[in-house]
């Protein structure tokens, strides 16, 4: 299991780096798909097969297909000259600083903790993690779940209005 973790980590980091360094947008998008696969691998190691399947089905199978479709429609085969914007540099630098600080704080303070609660690994294996996720979504986390679905619905209506607008 540990060896698998390192393999997936290597693939994830490598493909994430390639996404931002590749000049060809389509190759970038494909490396992002590879990155999603590595993440799905992590979920499987963590015994969360449902999340792994959803990661592939939704991100790799649907969203990235849309991204690839848009890249193909725009027909951008290669980014010619990357404009260096001072704004972007400042914001990007700030975000990476914050992320780095978070990682440092996490490494210093985050000691290994024993999982608590009634859902032990054996119990999850017995019931099946899909059932547990479903049960929690429709009982304890009903409100956030519904709010998320309303948000998506609003986004759909918004997209429809934008597409319908005649210029």
């Amino acid at each position: 299991m540990e060896a698998l973790f390192y393999v997936f980590s290597f693939i994830a980091i490598f493909s994430a780096l390639m996404v931002v360094t590749m000049r060809n947008p389509l190759t970038s998008a494909l490396y992002l798909v590879l990155c999603f696969f590595a993440l799905a691998g992590f979920y499987v190691i963590l015994d969360m097969q449902f999340l792994a399947a959803m990661q592939i089905l939704v991100y790799a199978g649907a969203i990235m297909v849309l991204v690839v479709l848009v890249i193909m429609l725009l027909n951008i085969s290669r980014i010619k000259n990357i404009g260096s914007d001072l704004h972007q540099k400042i914001i990007g630098g700030l975000i990476s600083l914050i992320l780095f600080a978070e990682i440092v704080i996490y490494i210093i303070n985050g000691a290994e903790k024993k999982p608590t609660g009634i859902f032990t690994g054996a119990l999850i294996k017995k019931i099946g993690n899909t059932q547990i996720i479903g049960e929690f979504l429709f009982t304890e986390y009903m409100l956030p779940f519904e709010i998320a679905s309303i948000l998506l619905f609003v986004a759909i209506i918004g997209a429809y209005l934008f597409a319908k607008k005649k210029y």
């Binding site: 389509l26 494909l30 798909v33 097969q49 449902f50 399947a53 959803m54 592939i56 089905l57 790799a60 199978g61 649907a62 297909v65 690839v68 479709l69 193909m72 099946g128 993690n129 899909t130």
Partner: peptide
């Protein structure tokens, strides 16, 4: 016999499109 059999199938069949799209591009 994975416990998410149907989802496994759906996830994999959703990937077949890449071959066609990439081949075309």
């Amino acid at each position: 016999d994975v416990n998410i059999g149907i989802l496994f199938i759906l996830a994999l069949t959703s990937l077949g499109v890449y071959g066609v799209v990439l081949g075309g591009w």
